[in-house]
């Protein structure tokens, strides 16, 4: 099985990129993935969002484990 990253997008991010799920090639760390995402979806440059790796919010550059589930999360607005 090829090494891939499963990406889920939510809220305004999903709206900007036009999908709620996509699969991308594996990137070593969150910064490399972010760069690739911004190239693939320039619209993401205009909004604020965070990354979660395997359901954990990250604040700094982090390694991406194999077959990780990544989520692109705009600012939360529950309640």
């Amino acid at each position: 099985m090829p090494n891939t990253i499963h990406i889920k997008a939510f809220g305004m991010v999903a709206e900007k990129i036009g999908t709620t799920e996509l699969v991308m090639d594996h990137y070593q760390d969150s910064e490399a993935l972010l760069d690739a995402l911004l190239v693939k979806f320039p619209a993401l440059k205009t909004i604020k969002f965070s990354l979660a790796i395997n359901k954990k919010l990250i604040s700094n550059k982090q390694e991406i484990p194999e077959n990780a589930e990544i989520a692109l999360l705009p600012p939360f607005s529950g309640g």
Binding site: F10, G11, M12, A52, A71, L73, P74, P75, F76, S77, G78, G79
Partner: peptide, 18 residues
Amino acid sequence: PVWGKEILDTDNHVWKVN
């Protein structure tokens, strides 16, 4: 990680901000 999409009477929507 919950998001509110505010549905407007103008057929538009805006994303809720807490």
